[in-house]
Design a protein around this nucleic acid. Sequence first.
DNA 1: TATTGTTATACTCTATAACTATA
DNA 2: TATAGTTATAGAGTATAACAATA
Lengths: 147, 147
Amino acid sequence: MTKTSLRRTARSLPIALLRARETVMGPVRDMLVSSGVNEQKWRVLRVLDEGGPLDQSLLAERACLQLPSLTRILRAMEDQGMVTRATDPADRRRSIVTISDVGRQVIEDHAQESLAIFARLEAAYGRERMETLLDLLEELNRVTPDA
Amino acid sequence: MTKTSLRRTARSLPIALLRARETVMGPVRDMLVSSGVNEQKWRVLRVLDEGGPLDQSLLAERACLQLPSLTRILRAMEDQGMVTRATDPADRRRSIVTISDVGRQVIEDHAQESLAIFARLEAAYGRERMETLLDLLEELNRVTPDA
DNA sequence: TATTGTTATACTCTATAACTATA
DNA sequence: TATAGTTATAGAGTATAACAATA
């Protein structure tokens, strides 16, 4: 160990969050391979399904993607018929992205499995504990909106 | 929204973990640009500094890296003099990785700043809340070791 | 035969900057 | 001049499979 003592890696928030995500993503990745969309497209669909039509900047932020990545992803998703894009008439620089029936169907097709994966994890981890964890994560995101 | 209601994305554990990590990594990334190592190398150094010499499989798991990625990263880190590698005499398939003084110095050089970043976040978020969050993340990693 | 680590491939994300169109 | 989104580029991670060396 170095002289200046850092926290144990298990108590390092960035590392702890990354390990937790790897833990949780295992079964989710298995689900996604059968869905025809990757993790990123799945996030885009989820965010659009939840928040309604969004411009790309906001969509990128909520889906944790860079704008250049999103540009490429949306091109593919448009080709697959999962989303549509339209110029915002109020500000013609903006492009508004809308989920289509095809996109909604992708979510619908995997919603049961997604819920089941979560339910299994919650059963193993504890319902109350899970709610507390999600509360704390939400609060963390509020503390530092992006910095 | 689709008919089968999934959780709000803020209550989706994979998405919540990803957003939390993005939130937390902002200042950490700023620190790392001045350190000469990227996120992945920093994790490798932290894990080695904490756990002592490790074989590559274990190191990969603890640092959340794939073995092929680790192979490439270690080659670079060996060239930079941050780590050394030696064949395990007890099992000559195994390669044991050890952090060097140079590697330890990289950690030492940024330990203060790393602690300060954490302290600021903790102050904004709440000390007790932070401890609870870290406890819950540790427990989550114990529930499902990797599945 | 199984395991550890390496190499190779294809795909994708990140980070950044330059660029276009619009405001 | 500033902003939204696109394009291009370099660097790097992921996933996977094939492979060599060793067990």
